[in-house]
Simulated assay, not measured.
Amino acid sequence: MKLSSLKALVTAAPTLLTVPLLALWSPAQAAGDYGTDTCAAGYVWREAIPSDHVCVTPQVRQQTAYDNSKAASRRNPLGAYGSNTCINGYVWRNAFNGDVVCVTPQVRQQAAYDNAQAANRLAPTNLYGPDTCISGYVWREAIPSDHVCVTPQVRQQTTYDNSRAASRRNPLGAYGPNTCVSGYVWREAFDGDAVCVTPQVRQQVRDDNAQAANRVAN
């Protein structure tokens, strides 16, 4: 996609934005202060939700904040998808799993493009000793000490699964409060990890654990 096309995607509604751009950006986000999530020069965290550290242009971050502020006004609570139904002309943003903020189709396309480019927009760093990931990988952080190197998408999935942990448990099940509801299994990213995830995510975790040594910078 050409740069001119990208600019067109994020300038479809710029005249509506009222939040000063500098108020949404901290220079530290591009200055190497945030470990493996540090963005390359010219990019900042999108923050569609606080844990969304996909690196985007400041303009896209501003668009994201604007769309979040307009979320309620773009829903039709009587629609086919209940309270998450978008009004005519809007679609779910899908910046992360479960993102149902309603945006224009162009903004959703921008979010998909930014997600695809996430690994390429991270600042190179060797500030974290033997746990430093090679380019394109970041710490998984299923718990703060989990420094297995994974793709940014897997890290994002991990954060999401952590946030859904309580809703996926059956406290009356065979394994007590750690019993997963039907369709979910323990993640097992580390010893004692009983966060409930899909079988596909658990397999991804096993693959990432097996590849951990190959993804660490020398």
Rank of each mutant, 00 (worst) to 15 (best):
G129H: 01
S145M: 10
N170G: 11
P171A: 06
Y128P: 05
C133Q: 02
P130A: 05
P124M: 03
Q117M: 14
A166S: 11
W92I: 11
C133Y: 08
G136C: 11
V100I: 08
D161P: 03
W139L: 01
V150E: 13
I134T: 09
P105V: 15
R108N: 09
R140N: 03
P144L: 07
A174P: 04
N97D: 07
C133V: 00
Q156A: 15
I143S: 01
V100C: 05
A112W: 04
D131G: 07
T125A: 00
S135F: 13
N120W: 03
C102T: 11
R164V: 09
V150Q: 11
A142N: 04
P124W: 04
A119Q: 15
S135G: 02
Q110Y: 04
T132H: 00
T159Q: 15
V107M: 06
Q106W: 06
A165G: 06
T104P: 12
L127Y: 02
L122D: 00
S163H: 07
P171I: 12
S167A: 14
R108W: 09
V107Q: 11
V100M: 06
Q110V: 05
H147Y: 09
A111V: 02
Y175N: 15
G173A: 05
R164T: 13
G173Y: 02
V138P: 11
N120E: 14
R155H: 10
N162R: 13
Q157M: 06
C149W: 13
Q110S: 10
R140H: 00
Y128Q: 03
N120I: 07
R108V: 00
Y128K: 02
V100E: 12
R108F: 02
S163M: 07
P124C: 10
L127I: 09
S167E: 12
S167M: 14
N170S: 12
A166P: 15
R108Y: 03
Q109T: 10
N162T: 09
V154N: 06
A119G: 04
P177M: 10
Q109L: 14
A123Q: 14
P144E: 01
C102F: 06
T151E: 11
V107L: 02
T132I: 00
N178Y: 04
N178G: 10
V101S: 05
I134S: 01
T179H: 14
R155Y: 02
Q157N: 03
V107E: 07
N97H: 05
Q153R: 12
F96C: 01
A119S: 15
Q157S: 00
I134P: 00
L122Q: 02
D131I: 08
T104I: 07
Q153A: 12
R93P: 04
L127F: 03
R164P: 05
A111H: 10
A123T: 05
T151V: 06
T151Y: 05
E141K: 13
P152T: 04
V138A: 11
A95E: 07
